[in-house]
Design a binder for these strands. Structure first.
Lengths: 133, 133
DNA sequence: CGTTACGTTTACGTAAACGTCAGCGGGCCT
DNA sequence: AGGCCCGCTGACGTTTACGTAAACGTAACG
């Protein structure tokens, strides 16, 4: 119904996080929901940011790093120097991620090799005692 | 000279880790250097394992997960059940890594988009004040 | 009016992965 | 013999990213 503003519980269900996590992110200034008195109300902007936060986390970025990246999305718009700095940060981050991609590919290949070696070994086991039933 | 056996200091220099880290990994049974009395001596096997440990860490695997992966490389060779279990673990790990790869590609694409958007914005800045010197 | 559900703040707890520090011994140089 | 560096072993401190619990507010339900 109110898909514009969501309660904390709705957010938890939608993103599979705990309320504690949302409050924690807020305390770290990663999101800043509106208030209805005391109660938090999360809008589209908060949902977009949370989505990015969760993805960032999956790559092992720290919340602090994520916070800096998020600043890309809403800058003072006029602070050119700050803007350039933020772009710079993003490019560095991109370089890190691309390097990680290479290493990940490498590691995947290696692990694949180990597994197929293991499977040949298992085939040997099966040959040595062919009939179990 | 002795490229077969290395002291802890040589290892630190070679891999850019602290001695504390090496001892810590040992306490977690990730590596098991020889001893000359009290002193640790690291061989080729230890270096290979350390290399894998450091790579694993870069992907966000925990030391405990890494330890399990390392067990692929030296299994009891005879404990078939244990062997199957380990292979199983490796396949799960591989699936995780492949999923990570997809997400990483996704994030890289998105970050690239943000950056090029930012660069267009910067071009606008330059146009509005074309001559600085 | 009691209780049930949801929300809030504040505060302490925890696991991982080390850093840092203290205290000790051994070897080597002079 | 004195000093110095290397290494060893605890033991405690630190950071990150939350979990967990206590204590309270409020709003609806029966």
């Amino acid at each position: 119904m109110t898909d514009e503003l969501m309660t904390i519980r709705q957010m938890c269900d939608a993103f599979e996080v705990t309320a504690r996590t949302l409050r924690f992110y807020e305390s770290k200034e990663l999101i800043s929901p509106l208030r209805d008195g005391q109660r938090r109300l999360y809008g589209r902007r908060d949902r977009a940011r949370l989505k990015l936060i969760l993805r960032g986390k999956r790559f092992g970025f720290s919340l602090e790093e994520i916070r800096q990246m998020l600043d890309l999305y809403d800058l003072d718009d006029g602070q050119e120097t700050q803007f350039r700095r933020t772009c710079e940060l993003a490019r560095e981050r991109l370089a890190v991620m691309e390097r990680q991609r290479l290493e990940l590919d490498d590691a995947i290949a290696e692990l694949r090799g180990q597994i197929s070696w293991g499977e040949r070994k298992l085939a040997d086991f099966d040959k040595r005692k062919p009939a179990a039933e």
